[in-house]
């Protein structure tokens, strides 16, 4: 591993995030004072959870690269565990699920080595071939296809896709001298989450026309397009600080990320609807579970990673 030094741009960007958070807390406080009758409990909880998540994320990202990888591996573990607790599983597959958990440290070990070739095929090829074999060895064929399909989809979503975030950290620093891998992670995570909030706010303010009422009745075209416009402006402003993206590319990324994040969000919504739950869990008060929070990232992380890798690395 190369030496770890936090670039001033990254510190500034994190400082900016904390300013935004202070602003959000202040707005919630003002709302509570203006309309004492209204209950802002959930909004308040949501902002409080944001504080905890962003403090943990900042510590995880800034202290050392090893810690960053452990932090992101732990998020994958929480997400996979939440997913496996949510879906129907077979008693016979207990040991197979144990193997599925073991893919997390292995996948992050490839990342720590910076071994791109292995990182990119380990889960889609080797794990994909291994887990069905392990299931066959146990010999339970009832619901086999369902079990093996659901398990692999979960691994692709919660481990493979999310781990692209971590591989940004080990890309060569020289290609992004002003902010390094941490700058890329910050840019991606900030834009993804900022767009989630922007889509929500635009939808609340102007939302009329529903996009896919059968899956997610609160999603509107107004929210979606408002999110894209807001994200393009944010990407345009932030990219020169944190990324090597050219102006045209930063606008393109500013449009791709909100669209991808939207899809990640509704895909997890469809899974929850299929299972019959409203939230994926209760880990993050005001947000729901961990899958509810990282749903957009499962789409934006691999797409952003391959965009930037193709053009700049």
């Amino acid at each position: 591993m190369r030496e770890w030094a936090v670039k001033p741009q990254v510190m500034l960007a994190i400082g900016g995030v904390f300013l935004l958070l202070l602003l959000a807390s202040f707005i919630v406080y003002l709302l509570g004072r203006r309309n004492p009758g209204k209950d802002y409990g959930e909004l308040r909880q949501r902002v409080k959870s944001w504080w905890i998540m962003i403090i943990l994320f900042s510590l995880g990202l800034l202290l050392s690269r090893k810690l960053s990888l452990v932090f992101f591996a732990f998020i994958s573990f929480l997400a996979l565990k939440e997913y496996l607790s949510l879906i129907p599983t077979r008693r016979a597959d207990r040991r197979v699920l144990f193997w599925a958990y073991l893919t997390i440290p292995v996948q992050f070990y490839w990342i720590a080595l910076g071994w791109y070739g292995m990182f990119i095929i380990f889960i889609p090829v080797y794990v994909f071939l291994f887990l069905p074999m392990r299931m066959v060895m146990i010999g339970e064929t009832r619901d086999f296809l369902h079990a093996v399909g659901a398990l692999h989809w979960g691994l692709m979503t919660t481990v493979f896709s999310l781990s692209h975030l971590s591989f940004l950290l080990v890309l060569p620093e020289a290609n992004n001298p002003q902010a390094g891998g941490a700058g890329l992670v910050l840019f991606l995570v900030f834009l993804t989450e900022f767009n989630d909030v922007a889509q929500y706010v635009w939808g609340k303010l102007l939302g009329r026309h529903k996009i896919i009422p059968k899956v997610s009745p609160n999603k509107t075209w107004e929210g979606f397009l408002g999110g894209i416009a807001t994200s393009m402006i944010a990407a345009y402003g932030l990219a020169p600080w944190l990324t090597p993206l050219s102006l045209e590319h930063s606008l393109a990324v500013g449009a791709i990320l909100p669209a991808a994040g939207f899809i990640g969000d509704v895909v997890i919504s469809a899974v929850k609807r299929d299972i019959g739950v409203k939230d994926s869990g209760s880990l993050l008060p005001g947000h729901g579970g961990i899958l509810d929070r990282i749903d957009s990232l499962t789409y934006t992380a691999p797409l952003f990673f391959h965009f930037i890798r193709y053009f700049y690395y």
Partner: peptide, 15 residues
């Protein structure tokens, strides 16, 4: 019971 049922020694994490 999913994490550690009777007769098993291997703990598999579930919420």
């Amino acid at each position: 019971g999913k994490s550690l049922p009777k007769g098993e020694a291997l703990l598999v994490p579930f919420f």
